[in-house]
Structures are given as C-alpha cells and as structure tokens.
C-alpha cells in the first residue's frame, strides 16, 4: 500500500556491504509535497533537502536506499506495518509520536512556525482570528489549544489558497515552508510573531529497528561533525545551522 510509485532511486553505493545484514534495501518513505524538505521535481522524482540528506546518509551508512512516497495521513501506520523502513518527511519529533515510533537525533534545528497572512493584514490578532492549518499537524493541535478558530485542510496548498480567498485570516505552518511562498507572492506576508512548537525534525523508525536507528544516528553525527549537514541546511534554507 502506499508503496508508491515514483522514482526508484537505487543507490548502488556499497551494495556488497549492504546485503550483509537484515536490510538489503532500506526503503525511505516521504510525502513529496512539502518543499523545501521534500517535493516532486519537474521530472517527477523526489527532490529537496531530505532527498539529498537521505542519499548522503545512506551512502555513509553503506546502505542501498530506495524512495517511496506516501500520503501524510497514513505515513506512520504504513511504517509500523513494515511497508517501508524509515520516514524522512519533515516530521517533527513529538512526545506523542515518540510513543509509537522511534526517532533518530534531529537533523534540523527546531524550526519556528510562522503565520502567513494577506499583505496589509500584519496587525492581525492571532488569538481571535480564523487560522488555517493542515489536518493532523503539530500546528493544528497548537491552534486548537490556543483557542483561535481552527480551519483544517487536507493539504498545505489548500490552506494557503484559503488565506488568499479570504476564507481564513492566517496559515500556521513551518517557517521554512512559508518563506519561499511569501517570497514568490507579493499579496502575502508573514507576521512577526512566531511559535516554537516541535523539537526539530528527525527520521522516524520502527521501535524494533534499533540496528537501523544506530546506523542512521551515526551517519547524522558524522554529517554534523564535518559540516556537510550545515551546508545542506544553508543550500535549502531550512532553518538555523548546527
């Protein structure tokens, strides 16, 4: 299920070593709809910060990896039932999720969430406003708890469209996601106010898969140590460097 299509990026690096243990091929699950973290490029392949990061991590851990896309809604159930081996989809590390799956150490700094509003509406009081968010995200629960009027949309695209149409006053989403949208559209602006929710983004793994977690953790540490992770963060503008 949801073993979707898309680019079959088979990395032929260190194939010999990779077949030595349990995971002959590691399948990486992503959403493919959350630029700059992960998206589909013009050729229809998974691209973005996490694509480059994942490929590099697999190379360092000497694993053969393959990319799979899956709807956001069912991304965790499909991981635990074994349809892919890791989630690398801009998923913030939260206590709720951590009860069900395991996370590697975070590979981005905690990214603030910001509010996207129509240009000229920067004086908005978010506490009494109508705020759009994607269903089942940390932002949606945050707005619900804050007490503002929450409008939930199935995809981030629709929530932005709602602000443009005047249906919602603001969108609450990851700053890295909103920044390029504001840049490209003069009718939109960001509020000064930011919310610190979530503990950075990590790779999600099955709790029983300690071996893969150890390998990925080691690979992330090595990328943090030699500065290559910072270079990627800078290239894709996904928040602060380590």
């Amino acid at each position: 299920m949801n073993k979707l299509i898309l680019s079959t990026a088979l990395l032929a690096i260190g194939a010999g070593a990779a077949f030595a243990d349990g995971h002959s091929v590691v399948r990486l699950g992503t959403e493919g709809a959350y630029p700059p973290f992960n998206f589909l490029n013009d050729a229809g392949e998974v691209d973005g910060f996490e694509r480059e990061l994942g490929d590099e991590l697999c190379a360092r851990a000497e694993l053969t990896c393959e990319w799979v896309t899956n709807e956001w809604d069912s991304i965790i159930p499909n991981l635990v039932s074994g349809n892919y081996d890791a989630i690398i989809a801009g998923m913030s590390i939260t206590a709720e999720r951590d009860e069900v799956i395991d996370f590697t150490q975070n590979y981005t700094q905690p990214d603030p969430s910001s509010y996207l509003v129509a240009a000229g509406n920067e004086g908005l009081n978010v506490e009494t406003a109508v705020i759009a968010a994607q269903t089942n995200t940390i932002q949606a629960s945050f707005v619900a708890e804050m007490g503002a009027t929450l409008l939930e949309f199935a995809s981030p695209e629709e929530s932005v469209a709602a602000v443009k149409a005047g249906e919602a006053d603001a969108v609450l989403a990851d700053d890295s996601f909103l920044a390029p949208i504001v840049e490209a559209d003069a009718e939109l602006a960001k509020l000064e106010r930011e919310e610190l929710i979530g503990g950075g983004i990590g790779m999600g793994l099955r709790e029983s898969d300690g071996e893969l977690k150890a390998k990925m953790d080691a690979a992330i540490s090595s990328m943090k140590a030699d500065g290559s992770l910072n270079a990627l963060i800078e290239k894709w503008e996904v928040g602060a460097k380590f």
Binding site: P77, T135, L151, E158
Partner: peptide
C-alpha cells in the same frame, strides 16, 4: 470533509473523528 470543505473548530463528521483517532492512536 474529505474533499475541499474544511472542518471548522474541529467540528466534523464521523469520518473526520475516525480519522482523528486513527492518526492519534496510529491504529486504524
């Protein structure tokens, strides 16, 4: 609530809540 129309203040139909629980408990 599955195609287009947004749910307001987490007021939705039966499928919306079923989906909410499936997402929170990770058990469909």
């Amino acid at each position: 609530f599955f195609s287009g129309f947004p749910a307001r203040q987490q007021r939705g139909d039966a499928l919306y809540y079923a989906n909410y629980f499936a997402d929170k408990t990770f058990n469909p």
